[in-house]
Design a protein around this nucleic acid. Sequence first.
DNA 1: CTGAAAGCGCTTACAG
DNA 2: CTGAAAGCGCTTACAG
Lengths: 345, 345
Amino acid sequence: MDSPPPPPSLRRRATGRATLNDVAAAAGVSAITASRALRGARAVDPALVARVQAAASQLGYVPDPAARALASARSAHVAVLIPLLSNALFVELLEAVQATLAPAGYQTLMGVTHYQPAEEDALLRSYLAHRPAGLLVTGLDRSDAARQLIAHSGVPCVHLMETAVTPGIYGVGLSQVDAARCITEHLLQRGRRRIAYVAGQLDPRVLQRAEGYRQALQAAGCYDPQLEVLDPSPTSMALGGHLLQDLLARHPDVDAVFFCNDDLAQGGLLAALRLQVAVPQRIAVVGFNDLAGSDQMLPPLTTIRTPRAAIGTQAAQMLLALMRGEAVAQSSIDLGFELVVRQSS
Amino acid sequence: MDSPPPPPSLRRRATGRATLNDVAAAAGVSAITASRALRGARAVDPALVARVQAAASQLGYVPDPAARALASARSAHVAVLIPLLSNALFVELLEAVQATLAPAGYQTLMGVTHYQPAEEDALLRSYLAHRPAGLLVTGLDRSDAARQLIAHSGVPCVHLMETAVTPGIYGVGLSQVDAARCITEHLLQRGRRRIAYVAGQLDPRVLQRAEGYRQALQAAGCYDPQLEVLDPSPTSMALGGHLLQDLLARHPDVDAVFFCNDDLAQGGLLAALRLQVAVPQRIAVVGFNDLAGSDQMLPPLTTIRTPRAAIGTQAAQMLLALMRGEAVAQSSIDLGFELVVRQSS
DNA sequence: CTGAAAGCGCTTACAG
DNA sequence: CTGAAAGCGCTTACAG
């Protein structure tokens, strides 16, 4: 298959890779027909499609994403903004998103906001400059600037983890308030009355859970603001242990602790073991999210299982539909949660 | 600042965003001068640079990455291939890489191989089609096809986690063999003789650790192949617990267990607690990597701390140098490890 | 130090 | 159903 190299002047900076023109020439059609055939656009003679595809695979043709993005003014990138990578929840979310988007031909661009609105704004600005085909952001709370950027960009956007109420806002998630109310009611049903809520990080969802906790306790008539421990530090097992120890020192009558997240709860459980505080006899301990290891604790941890993989998958599917310009049946999908009762409560 | 809209015919598919030409016009220079001024290229009159920058920021100009990639045949993407997202080690690596690359203007494209050579090959093929400016891959083991793809692509590539020996191969990591030998010797020094190695996943680094374990025990004359438990399942706390229980049932005389990873070791520690096997009195337990929570265990876990954040940072810096075409002093950097002795041994 | 021309590899919009 | 032309927004390579 020797073909004379093109005169140097004609491909000064060529990369050596087969180009759409090469494919078209080999198939004996015009570049635009080759383009249409390869993209599976309608209105191309099946015979030509076959010829073009054969030529493409024979030449090992791979379309250049940059050229495609420039010509069509739309890239195959989807930007995903998550608060943290150190919380396994978001990693699982990201993994599900990527697993759904990749087979559809989209590249996931991950951005970490560290729960800082300013970082989110900066990331949004920078990612939007790349004209992503779609956008996935975590939660509904963000700066006005961020909201404007998203709205004005015209880029389809789906919100993760919470359920949207505003029309025109797309979201897939669950009601953090309901889930927190549910697990608090579980503690009440078990006869607990001095129930503490111990939280770190204090991001919007952690505060929503505090709200659910409050609702349940107020309804039962045993809400005590003193038992609400809201610590802004990042969560960790160590923090969970410290907060539990402090809490028990200040309020020895506490009979249950609802940790805002499983990492805190796991640390609390280990601290209880260390301090010889019997769980669930003296205090019940519950967490949130059902992270890895919670089922291995001593005793195994009662918690709320959140469907983050399903959230990631369905949000990505919703985004895929929006990017194709399809109408979406429901703009907000509530995937619920599951109370997982183990031996710690 | 009313300027008449350009005739429609001139910007048929314009995106509405300011373009380099707009900036150049506003600054009263040519497009190429504006381009050079904005990229900080040498050989531009400082006065013009200032004018161009003023015009750019006034117009809110953001360069189009697709156009830039197409014209220069090089994107601002760096592809990073890691085996798994469910191992916190790789997440931390990725985070460090991204934190180093982002300020330098590079986008990180993450790919997960699931330890499958075929998946790695496919990802490499697809990422390389995007002409990334650089490539970061985990470990040194891969298929011949993958090796060829990387070599022929001409894209600078740095290998993570291990130390490269082949000339022309760049890498930042540590000697897994040495680290495993070190922690095994620690157990020997503590007087342990029936030391088991319990591993899951069985990726190349886990097998290198097995090698270090063997070397130490053979040198001490107490290597027993029966005490090498190599399970191909993915690692988890639950698996660590099961493997420990099985091991103790089959070999009640085991006096120490070296788990190939901290998640397994944490599960082993919790199982020991459940089974009332005294640690470290009856068996010493050690892990590898020093993951989150290991210091919170009961007893706290002795382990090897691997410098994954530093590995990510330095590998990214090395790649940055290679992408700039700079020579790199050392093609392979050994960042070592640290034996962290806690109460489990 | 600065610029006019050409080109990167695709797709859009318009004809036929 | 197919194609010739123009253009996306930059940068390269060449002059001056």
